[in-house]
Design a protein around this nucleic acid. Sequence first.
RNA 1: GGGGGCAUGGCGGAAGUGGUAGACGCAGCGCACUUAAAAUGCGCAGACGGCGACGUUGUGGGGGUUCAAGUCCCCCUGCCCCCACCA
Length: 880
Amino acid sequence: MTDSSRYRPQVIEERWQQRWHSQSLDLTPELDTSDLASAAKAEPYYALSMFPYPSGSLHMGHVRNYVITDVIARVQRLRGRAVLHPMGWDAFGLPAENAAIERGVDPGAWTDQNIAQMREQLKRLGLSIDWDREVATCHADYYRWTQWLFLQFLEAGLAYRSEATVNWDPIDQTVLANEQVDGEGRSWRSGALVEKRKLRQWFLKITAYADQLLDDLPKLQGWPERVRTMQANWIGRSHGAELRFEVVDASGAGSGQQITVFTTRPDTVFGVSYVVLAPEHPLVASLTGAEQQLQVEAFIDLVGRQSDQERTAEDSPKRGVPIGAQVRNPANGELVPLWIADYVLADYGTGAVMGVPAHDQRDFVFARQYELPVRQVIIPEGSDEHAYEGGAWTTAGVLIHSGEFNGLPSGEARERIIAAAESAGWGQGRVQFRLRDWLISRQRYWGCPIPVIHCEACGVVPVPAEQLPVELPKGMELAGKGGSPLAQLESWVSVACPCCGKSARRETDTMDTFMCSSWYYLRYSDPHNTSLPFSREAVDRWLPVDQYVGGIEHAILHLLYSRFFTKVLRDRGLLGFDEPFSRLLTQGMVQGITYKNPHSGKYIAPADVADPSDPRDPATGEVLDTFYEKMSKSKYNGVDPAAVIDRYGADTARMFILFKAPPEKDLEWDDADVEGQYRFLQRLWRLVDSALERGLSLSPRGASPAGGAEPPLSDGDQELRRAVHTAIAAISEDLDGDYQFNTAVSELMKLSNAMASHLETASEPVALEALRVLLVLLAPFAPHLAEELWQRLGANPDGDQGIHGQSWPEVDPAALRRDTVTVVIQVKGKVRGQLDVPADADAATLEKLVLASEVASKWLEGQAPRRVIVVPGKLVNLVP
RNA sequence: GGGGGCAUGGCGGAAGUGGUAGACGCAGCGCACUUAAAAUGCGCAGACGGCGACGUUGUGGGGGUUCAAGUCCCCCUGCCCCCACCA
């Protein structure tokens, strides 16, 4: 083999990337808007990957994400769609600011440098991305429109300021959204235990869209079920009632004050033994009796020092104190004591709960502890036993001890009691959501400034649209502590009020970066627009996104916020659809082989493990635990994409990632499997080499186009054509709908195996058809190799669009047809043999043929079968 | 506690509406080529029994429906993910 005919991915990949770039092959086609051209108009297709944070280095998770989207984009192009496949950067955020604090670098410069670095790494993957549409959320020409959109929310009454108890990260010195605090009460970024603080903060009223966000979930049939479920749980709608308990004094006289509770079980209102408030409830101070003062204050102090996680852990003891007041149960007039307790949350419902120990497990535990009465008011249907021994009876049943509602089933009682409360004025039905408004204020520098001005005379004044963007001041020295950096820059803060002209102060909070990422997919449709974030025309043409691809970690926040944005912007008339992403693919993570010393807990780099079949700690000789886990620096289990590309080329990396696991499953990185993929690509190279040696050419000036083979075809030709068209059918199906790239690649392997055995003896037209189809099918997966082989076969004259401008092949049903098929002979459902029969044999013929077979006579032993089941083309089951 | 998902060879994974379980690949074994090795090519390969043709068994466990079950139904076990004192 000569050197020039060796597969050298490093050479050919770089060459084709340059060529494609110079031919502008990846640019998004301009969509013709004129009606005249509509006949020729290609249908748009929008393939989108979740954009990365520009950390500076590409990791395998990125590679998997973008390769999947790239294959989808390339397939759609081959199918004649006008494809939008963009990329950008989620570029605001803490890492840049932290780098600035630690190393004194400029966050903008640091970010731009990272972007440049990652862009080059991405380009090496051969992604067909339209880089002319690149956006970075930290650039003023982008965040100008983030600000503009914020003002839309403000104008719509969907952005407001409110004093709120917020999560304060003592390390990053900033406020965090609930979603950025993990289950242990730690900051998602710094890992610090989050504290509580009261601050005035900006919120977006996502709760105003809670119903729509929930009710539209069933529309998203192209989303994974579990993502829809996660969102539904997160929104958490529950139906119940607000009931008002009047505060009464010792003599039973009403005070005029009321405690409003929220309950999903109004049917249990006759079982209330006490009413309990959150310690933070605003009425606690005024209602506390003189004798209880000290005790109550001590309790509130105690609860205040608990972390959220301590307080809300399910198994934590429920503690409380009576505050020395009592309330009247509006349903039965009974007086019950008023308590405060740590198990009641201030920010859910009304911050007050009616205690029904017989029918709520928490109330039950609480009542047992403080010897409060337990009165059963619901019994299991058809029983009158006390079913709550050892725990509360929390399921539905029939009412007792409930006055006029006795005997009603729970469901009906709920409606009747709510109706009674409404007509008597002590309550009403109410829907409650778990979802809270979105806290978007951040006391950080490296974010999008909130474009408002605070004027003593005019209040909160939006920055006029023509004055946008409110640019971040450059050249700031960031200390990393003491609250908002912007607040310390007097020259930036001090500004004239746009309304009255008097001196006023800029808002110094910046926005949660999720704001920036909630609309970037809209900007790609019209990235250079300088008068609007996007034109209605462009956004309605390209969106909704046909296929969105990204990690499951964004199942709730990013996707929910984006859906919220879309609905608000639709209501503002800025776009004409109400869900942004038609189909969603959540790809699994990439895991690396991980070695851990079970005793010391130390992770060992694979390179330091001498013998992987007997992994031992190089320092101590102890046997190591071996498993696969998400790649991370601290576990030394990462694989650098650049190193893989250097060694095997991008095509091998792409093929491996697509083949190794279905896209939504976790993928275990395995060097041996990477080698296997590399070998497969080399086999393809040699296959084309052997075709060249035979003088085959796909040049239009050469032999007649494939498919024109003269019948009758030889057996080998027939078999090869069958393999070719089976592959087209199978791969087309794998790429439709569920995206089974792994089986698509295996079909490519099967086709290549078939060609290895038949190509040499095949007639020229059949051989050429096979080569052409193989390469076009390969093109989305291994774009460089496919293009190179295409050219080597002479099919790529200058000025031609190359293999990526070809059309996806069509299945020729005639090629799949067979003269004979092999049917399975079963006896009583067990496979006992096979028989070749004419493909068009009908059931009766088939039965006759099988009954006459040796297999039948062997197993039936002369008996006539009692029953014969015939599945034409498949099997015959004989039941003796 | 609530919700969702998964369980198939040594490994990753295949198996339209029930119809030959284990495609494709990795690792492994044998053969060819080679002085040798690598690379490459060809072949074998769920387990058990048998020289073999073959037979038995087999998709986490137990039942069921069916001519036929990885696939449908019931029960159980294990693992993963999300939510969670949400009243």
